[in-house]
């Protein structure tokens, strides 16, 4: 469905010298590789998380895959098309949703934007009606459909943006930070919707998000990019298995710890009575916990997995130290 080979994007930018005259008359340019010779493929009916720090090249890659940007080198084949040629038959099969950009007509109700897209994508009347009804119901936005877009909250607008972009039931969805800036409730609504949509229409989704919970909930495959290069491409569970070596034990104590109590020095401890937090390697949990249980009185004990953010951080730390 998507085949990318040796894709590179180089931007030409100028280096500021700090002197206005020099910058104007004798500007020094440099070339920045936003995407550096990457290759991957995506099959039908998959949801892939595309993650990495700011400036890693995620959005640039998606923009080349959708045909917005012209690649400096390499080849892209999406649904059998070269995206940059922007053939209408290709554009009718994709959608690109950007969390921080608005494509609804600002001064008018969203229904006007829907009608426009109906004509643009040549959607038949009955298909259009059914799709709008279905998506409106899924995202629960009947009550503000007829309000001008400029009067809506970010969460409401984002829901309508999704409907507007999905009216033509695209086969491929590029989602660039779809939950950015949203509160937890709106985030959950959007994430559940994406999951439901993908299940229902078997589309392929490429998702970028800085909220790792989003990626964890949606994607089973992740591609991690840094400095324009792919540094991991595989199952999220494999990454977790490989890099999640620790668990956090949180104990709510009944009494303060006695002076004679001690634990091995290599254990990371955060003690603020009544909470005692310990970071323990998986293979030492049993041993350490038995020590604690003997010496301390407690009212509660929980064992938590490392957050996906922590795991990704560790992964980045390891890959950058290997360079």
């Amino acid at each position: 469905m998507i085949q990318v080979n040796n894709l590179t994007k180089i931007y030409k930018t100028y280096e500021k010298s700090g002197n206005i005259l020099t910058d104007f008359f004798n500007r020094q340019y440099k070339q920045v590789k936003a995407v550096d010779n990457i290759s991957f493929q995506l099959e039908t009916n998959t949801l892939v998380g595309f993650i990495g720090p700011n400036g890693a090249g995620k959005t640039t890659t998606m923009k080349m895959l959708s045909g917005i940007l012209y690649p400096s080198s390499g080849t892209i084949n999406v649904l059998g098309y070269n995206p940059f040629e922007k053939k209408p038959d290709f554009l009718k099969q994709i959608a690109f949703i950007m969390g921080q950009k608005n494509q609804l007509l600002w001064e008018l109700p969203a229904t006007d934007s829907f009608r426009l897209n109906k004509e643009i994508y040549e959607i038949e009347d009955n298909v259009y009606k059914n799709t709008v009804n279905e998506l409106v119901e899924l995202l629960n936005c009947q009550s503000f459909l007829s309000q001008p877009v400029k009067t809506l909250s970010l969460g409401q607008r984002m829901r309508l943006e999704l409907i507007n972009s999905l009216l033509h039931l695209p086969k491929i969805l590029f989602l660039d930070e779809p939950t950015i800036g949203l509160d937890i409730f709106a985030q959950t609504t959007i994430i559940n919707f994406i999951k439901e949509y993908q299940n229902r229409y078997h589309s392929s989704v490429l998702l970028t998000s800085h909220y790792m919970q989003d990626v964890q909930k949606l994607a089973n495959r992740i591609i991690i990019v840094n400095l324009g290069k792919i540094i991991f491409d595989g199952k999220l569970m494999d990454l977790i298995k490989q890099f999640s070596q620790e668990k956090t034990v949180v104990i709510t104590l009944n009494k303060p710890i006695s002076q004679d109590f001690s634990l091995p020095e290599n254990i990371e401890i955060d003690y603020n009575y009544p909470l005692l937090k310990l970071k323990l390697k998986k293979d030492e949990i049993n041993h350490i916990l038995s020590l604690i249980l003997k010496k301390c009185e407690f009212v509660d004990l929980t064992i938590e997995d490392e957050s996906i953010e922590e795991i990704i951080k560790k992964f980045f730390k390891k890959t950058s130290s290997n360079r």
């Binding site: 923009k63 959708s66 045909g67 917005i68 922007k86 209408p88 038959d89 554009l91 009718k92 994709i94 959608a95 690109f96 950007m98 950009k101 608005n102 494509q103 643009i120 994508y121």
Partner: peptide, 13 residues
């Protein structure tokens, strides 16, 4: 400047 031209370039017209 805002990059919203992206959306227009992606429409099939």
């Amino acid at each position: 400047v805002s990059g919203e031209l992206d959306h227009i370039l992606l429409k099939p017209y």
